[in-house]
Amino acid sequence: MRVLVCVKRVPAPGAKINITPDGQAVDTAYLAFTTSPHEECAVEAAVQLVETHGGEATVMTLGPADAEEQLRYAASVGVARCVLLPIADRDWDPQRTAAALAGAIRDLEASDGPFDLVLFGNESADAGNFQIGVRVAHALGRPMVNGIKGIELDGATVRAKREADAGVEVYALPVPAVLGVKEGINLPRYPTMKGRLNAKKVAVDSVEASVAAGGQQMITLLQAQEQVTQTVLLGEGVDAAPAVVDLLEELGLLK
């Protein structure tokens, strides 16, 4: 089977996210980069599907040239092919990103055959637009369900599970299908030494995309309002236990 995973390179902030003075981006001077945990799980799901059913997994991203790092990471855990849609300027809006990805997928399918499954993350870590996978699926004319925490391939049907408030919902989608994956579906593996070496050698195909901008345009990033708390120190070590239990009583939690 052929599986494609779409991932997005994002900064990995620690205790606080700082914004550049012009308000256009996260200040990444001291930051590493990663993808959303949802997307890491989508990559793992793709690799597992290929291990079980045979075939090949491909990873694709639209982003700066440096996003090659995230593609190679996917290669280090078992993805065979890497495709980069390089963009020079800042993030594209969701309509534009989706149109570019859909176009590139069509081209890949025209030359190498259709993907049985295209996987996305539930949402990107930074922008959280909750739509790029849905838009790509619609452009390709394929069924799509987001928030998936279980994938089982059964012939020409993929059974996908999703956790809702009321319980676990099951969807049965005809293949080819598109799914948005949520963290928790699996525990992503770490790259092996051999995987890392392979990833250095894998070719990264570069595909130019030219698509018009959509109707959502970012003006600036802003800090969220932060409540400043004066932390009350209840004590050190086991000696603090009575003060903690006093607090529990005060909060009405000792019923």
Binding site: E236, G237, V245
Partner: peptide, 29 residues
């Protein structure tokens, strides 16, 4: 960060502090 942002804090080894809290609750009950 969790400590500086929290309303209350106990500085110490959780492996000792957590059982001590449970024991104190049981003692009072």
């Amino acid at each position: 960060n969790m400590v500086t942002k929290a309303d209350y804090a106990v500085i110490g080894d959780l492996h000792k502090v957590v059982p001590a809290i449970t024991a104190e609750i049981r003692r009072r009950r």
